[in-house]
Design a protein around this nucleic acid. Structure first.
Length: 328
DNA sequence: CTGATTTGACCGCG
DNA sequence: CGCGGTCAAATCAG
């Protein structure tokens, strides 16, 4: 069935998309510049900042809730190791998400005394069947789909956090050697908020979900002003109309939208950041972290611009190993 | 049957 | 040694 954006939303969406697309392109250019002359890089940074700033304005202007969420998050953002945090729209339902969290601290129901030394039953995989036929991952990715195929490979409770962290690796880790990984952890209950941290870039080509060539799908976005040349790595905007961000934004479609925040570190030391790991997966609000949110409190909502530039600067000037994050 | 999830066991690092 | 990240056997889902 076809789904369309509410007018109010689509207009802004249009603008946001344009801004983000531009920003992404500039980041790509910047990446290339970084290996070259620094001057041009500086100019790009400025442009990028402007682009994202505009985006923020648009978004904040139309969505007041956003600010709230953002501040809320900070309020109780855990002491994550990485960095900042972001937020997104509000959701309502819960569902398999609960199952997820429970699973983390589960294992109560009578356990036999295994654990001896050698012959005890490995209970891996012996989990109870889910009530809902949905899987955590399924629901999650559906809402927070970032355009890539992920495979969950672990879940763990993290110290000082109330919810377990979920580990995902690119589905093509083996068939294509893609190193991309990401962690998703719920950091807030009320309006459910999730933090998604990306590690590494996708080196895979998901023929099913990310066509290599971006067909101009009628969309007007991609004002191609700056030419398009985003390699494979998906193109969220053109590919998915119900992008997480937007959908959560207006909570249209999908009965409930979870908020989620994303952090996107570019670690992957052993390798250079080859082309974009662009903001794709995170498409929307961007607000760098670097400990800014990390600790707690302090407002960001209206400080976006500042924070952002601060981060950007730090990011590009200093270590490139740093995580920058986006709000979703 | 094949591919994805679940979840305790492992493991490396600090 | 504890913690966070990953592995992989057991299950689930289509």
């Amino acid at each position: 069935m076809e789904w369309t954006w509410p007018e109010s939303v689509s207009s802004n969406r249009q603008r946001v998309v344009e801004e983000l697309v531009q920003g992404r392109e500039m980041v790509n250019q910047l990446q290339r510049c970084l290996s070259g002359d620094v001057r041009s890089a500086e100019g790009l940074v400025t442009k990028i900042l402007g682009s994202f700033t505009n985006t923020l304005r648009i978004l904040n202007g139309s969505e007041e809730a956003k600010e709230e969420l953002i501040s809320q998050i900070q309020a109780n953002s855990p002491t994550s190791t990485v960095t900042a945090s972001g937020s997104a729209a509000a959701g309502t339902d819960s569902l398999s998400w609960d199952a997820l969290d429970d699973a983390g601290k589960s294992e109560d129901s009578n356990e036999e005394s295994y654990k001896s030394t050698e012959t005890f039953k490995d209970r891996r995989g012996s989990y109870k069947r889910r009530k809902t036929s949905h899987s955590w991952t399924k629901d999650t990715l559906d809402l927070v789909d970032d355009g890539h195929a992920w495979r969950k490979y672990g879940q763990k409770m993290i110290l000082n956090t109330r919810h377990p962290r979920n580990y995902f690796r690119c589905t093509h880790k083996f068939d294509q050697g893609c190193k991309a990984t990401k962690h998703v952890q719920r950091i807030k209950d009320e309006p459910q908020l999730f933090r998604t941290t990306y590690y590494g870039n996708h080196t895979c080509t998901d023929y099913l979900r990310a066509p290599e060539l971006i067909l101009d799908s009628s969309s007007s976005q991609d004002s191609s002003k700056n030419m398009i040349r985003f390699d494979n790595t998906n193109n969220d905007f053109t590919r998915k109309q119900e992008h997480p961000f937007f959908s959560s934004f207006t909570s249209i479609k999908k009965e409930s939208v979870k908020e989620e925040e994303m952090i996107t570190p570019i670690n992957d030391h052993d390798h250079v950041i080859h082309h974009n790991q662009q903001l794709s997966s995170c498409d929307y609000l961007m607000s760098p972290g670097l400990g800014v949110f990390e600790s707690s409190a302090s407002t960001i909502a209206y400080d976006h611009e500042d924070v952002f530039s601060r981060i950007m600067v730090g990011y590009f000037d200093d270590e490139v190993d740093f995580p920058y994050e986006f709000f979703l």
